[in-house]
Design a protein around this nucleic acid. Structure first.
Lengths: 156, 156
DNA sequence: GTGCATCATGGAGTCAACTCCAGGGTCAAG
DNA sequence: CTTGACCCTGGAGTTGACTCCATGATGCAC
């Protein structure tokens, strides 16, 4: 039998693999987004692959606009059985509806951005007045990444 | 000649019409998201329709994930002429690219949510183990509205 | 010309989500 | 068995985006 036990990581590795900071991992644990992680005899947190998955899930959820509290509610249903599953289903359905609303907002905003881009091009091509149409009556705006999570070292 | 001058509003009306608070309007002005508004002789801010449009634009931009700083950059190019338009175009193009990335994140997340919903349904229908698949290895999450901006009165 | 709602300003407070820090263990290498 | 990298906890600090407050002026109705 090959000795392929599932790999585990300490907080530094886990942080590197999830592109979060060590402090953020500890913070998530305090906030209940992760259960208290198992520790080594010396007290070091140990992360397994499933937990890293969970962290990536959290990151994606955040990136699309959920608060940590929202996320906590979803992942903290750590009871067992069908009754829990029913509640989770309900939560997910709710979140899905919210997501769809956000999606259509995003699309509407995208349309207005494209419109502005074209208006800009028209102005730059010399058609009409040299008034950039973005900053005046009908101006669209651009999106932005949810957060700069740059893994700054934790008191190296 | 009919006396149809464009309507203007004081801050309370403007706040009501944009579903923002008075304080938020003042805050946006301080932060440079709006130019300093014209005042009545008594010093009261006056808002016109174009400004309300701008506020709605800001709200939409925020709802899809932009920071006020992002938005400020876009709306503060209040110079004139083609050179400004070129810069604005560049900014918009950048934001558009970011937006598309966010859109695909959202769609990916949506897929994972739908998958979880189906997994929940399967469990609830009695197929397989009664282990809700959401909270374990492969759990998706739901989205959330950007912010609850409920127009609390400004020291009514 | 007196009320009363509405407004102004400057500054302090709040909340979420981190981020940093001090003081002190753990552990693998040499 | 010392050293340097890494980790622990508890708590304070930071940033963005508001929100609230005290004090005082406006403005329209009666």
């Amino acid at each position: 039998m090959s000795n392929d036990t599932a790999p585990t990581y300490r907080i530094g590795e886990a942080a590197a693999r999830t592109a979060l900071s060590r402090d953020t991992l500890r913070y998530y644990e305090r906030m209940g987004l992760l259960p208290r992680q198992p520790r080594t005899s010396g007290g070091f947190r140990v992360y397994d692959e499933a937990t890293l998955e969970r962290l990536l899930f959290i990151t994606r959820a955040q990136a699309v606009g959920f608060s940590l509290e929202d996320i906590r509610q979803l992942v903290s249903f750590d009871g067992q059985g069908l009754e829990r599953c029913g509640r989770v289903r309900h939560l997910i359905a709710t979140k899905l509806a919210e997501l769809d609303e956000r999606l259509s907002e995003l699309r509407a905003f995208r349309r207005s951005l494209v419109g502005s881009l074209r208006a800009c091009d028209a102005v730059l091509a010399g058609d009409g007045d040299p008034e950039c149409p973005v900053v005046d009556p009908e101006k669209p705006l651009g999106p932005r990444a949810p957060r700069e999570r740059a893994l700054k070292r934790d008191r190296a």
